[in-house]
Design a protein around this nucleic acid. Structure first.
Lengths: 349, 349
DNA sequence: CTGAAAGCGCTTACAG
DNA sequence: CTGAAAGCGCTTACAG
């Protein structure tokens, strides 16, 4: 039952047991059609009897340096966003015959070494959202192997995928305006180029088009900061009749905190989020938010990476996937109120 | 800007540019103290100028077959449970100098090939929960390299980690009983040996100890099935005054569906879940559920794997981490009602 | 259909 | 402090 020593069963031992050369073992195990059935069976039996597992490293080195692995750099996974991205990525990768090696790297930490080491293990690598990797590191790696980015500012001429932010944000704010809201504020720190930054721009465009003044509360998009902001708002007296929050985490924290202090949503204030988390469907009132095709995004990134590995050049264009409004009741347009999950994913007409 | 051909810069070219041997390059790049500063700097400059990235495969093959990678087999990630597990695992792995290669494998699909190929790439491998891997495959791989399982039935003499189910389940049901509930049902399919199976056992133990009859609704633990079950319950007339659900997904679906049909929770019926998902804190009433130390679990699995890789034998004992009640208001013991997030993680006294 | 042998890109005793 | 050379475990033309 003891694990074999580090240097376990090799192809030589399988060859010896089967009475053939290592070349034949190599071929038989990969079902090379040139090998005869009896030989193939003998080899497979020998391999099974010895629990032989061909070392991926040796195979990779011998077979033209392909690792058949894809790297994925993500920030730490909290919400469903990154989990879904990972699922989409892994599913597509395994279908395409790649394994996936992940590295979680938050913007703060120094992960140059970890990311370089990841790059050294894979045929191609994807950088997602606001993960640690700085642009110069990404450029350096891109000189070495195919690189694709997603939901983060483009690096060099590498392929880049996005989910649309600005237009949906404009649509969302317009919707609030159409329902009579006027004193609408954006909640979330709108760093230029970031997702929140783009959402903020779309929001502002709608406000400006309506001839209304804009108001922005630069709150870090976390539950904790959301609660703190809501309390501040309560102290200073609610001046807004709608809050467009940068993500669901923020929106939910604000929603719950305000409710706990007697504010009625959406009657007193409408609230919207972004990401369409599970909780958005369960809170009362149901949270109007934006749904993003995250799994699809993961799949498309893999597809592009795979093409690049097979020799394709980077495409010049940037791919932007559409996001859609998940229209529930916290936006205040639905006078019947009730949070009906059967309608939870309905879009605006 | 074009990616270099598959066979990119090698150690030979760095050696040539720096005017030293490949041995010196190898040492200089890994900061071997034997290399003089001037030489080291020259080598580093040459490597940087050429964007040299040492191939992990060649390195692994040359250096005693260590891959410095850990394998992680998970079912598809939906809830926060697996996402947290992954974060705990990855964090610990990267601290210990391992990269992590993941494979998502649901019980239905045939992933023997994928899992074997994963095993061939790593120094050790962890099988989590109800992922695809059958015991015979796990045993086969365990003969090859260190294997650890978590939250799934133990395989052979390999290290196995669990989060406690039965005792907490008993505690949870006892709590409902202490608050006057009598007609308590368990909701969820209690497959023997599974998490739900253990939770069911604990539940039954409490009921039996109280001299009460037990009632089990074998519902597949998903949102959809939860809703269907709730509708059935409504049709057949509510006979229960409490529902112990196998997980939060189920509990939340049941809770919301019943509420939509006028059932008052917890007044008419108490409801509890399991997993302490984000939504449990946001629904109204707050969902009483069970919180599991999932990140810690991931970290401990890595630690054990790492010890095994360093030569330790499998420990004979099975490690079971404690779970704790996350006590909110859906259980009906808190007459003041309100869903107060500040108390959301309070345990029972 | 099968084998002998070179080679993939590193690391590491062994020498000096 | 540095180098020459063997070797890690595979695959793959090249021969037969």
């Amino acid at each position: 039952m003891a694990t074999r020593p580090a240097t376990g069963v090799t192809i030589y031992q399988v060859a010896q047991r089967a009475g053939v050369s290592t070349a034949t073992v190599s071929r038989a195990l990969r079902n090379d059609p040139r090998i005869s059935d009896p030989t193939r069976i003998a080899v497979q039996e020998a391999a099974a009897a010895l629990d032989y597992l061909p070392r991926a490293a040796a195979r990779s080195l011998a077979a033209g340096n392909r690792t058949h692995a894809l790297g994925l750099v993500l920030p730490h996974i909290d919400g469903p966003y990154y989990a879904d991205l990972l699922v989409g990525f892994e599913t597509a990768a395994s279908q395409a015959g790649y394994s996936v090696i992940i590295t979680l790297a938050n913007p703060r930490q120094d992960s140059r070494a970890a990311i370089r080491s990841l790059a050294a293990q894979v045929d191609g690598i994807a950088f997602m959202a606001r993960s640690a990797a700085r642009s110069d590191l990404i450029e350096e790696i891109a000189r070495t192997r195919p690189v694709v980015t997603a939901a983060r500012s483009r690096v060099g001429a590498n392929d880049a995928f996005f989910v649309e932010n600005e237009d949906v944000a404009e649509e969302l704010t317009s919707h609030l305006l159409a329902n009579g809201r006027q004193r609408i504020a954006f909640v979330g720190s709108p760093e230029p180029g970031s997702d929140l930054g783009m959402r903020h721009r779309g929001h502002q465009a709608a406000m400006t088009a309506a001839g209304l003044p804009t108001s922005t509360h630069p709150v870090f998009p976390s539950e904790q900061e959301g609660r703190r902001f809501a309390l501040e708002l309560l102290e200073s007296g609610m001046e807004h009749d709608a809050l467009v929050c940068g993500n669901d985490e923020l929106a939910l924290a604000v929603l719950q905190t305000l409710q706990q202090h007697g504010v009625r949503v959406p009657d007193d204030v409408a609230i919207t989020g972004w990401d369409d988390t599970v909780t958005a469907r369960y809170v009362s009132p149901g949270l109007t938010t934006v749904s993003q095709p995250v799994r699809q995004l993961g799949g498309m990134v893999v597809q592009r990476l795979s093409q690049r590995i097979d020799g394709a050049d980077p495409t010049a264009e940037v791919v932007t996937l559409p996001a859609t409004l998940a229209h529930r009741t916290s936006c205040g347009c639905n006078p019947t109120g009730g949070n009906n999950p059967n309608e939870s994913n309905k879009e605006l007409p």
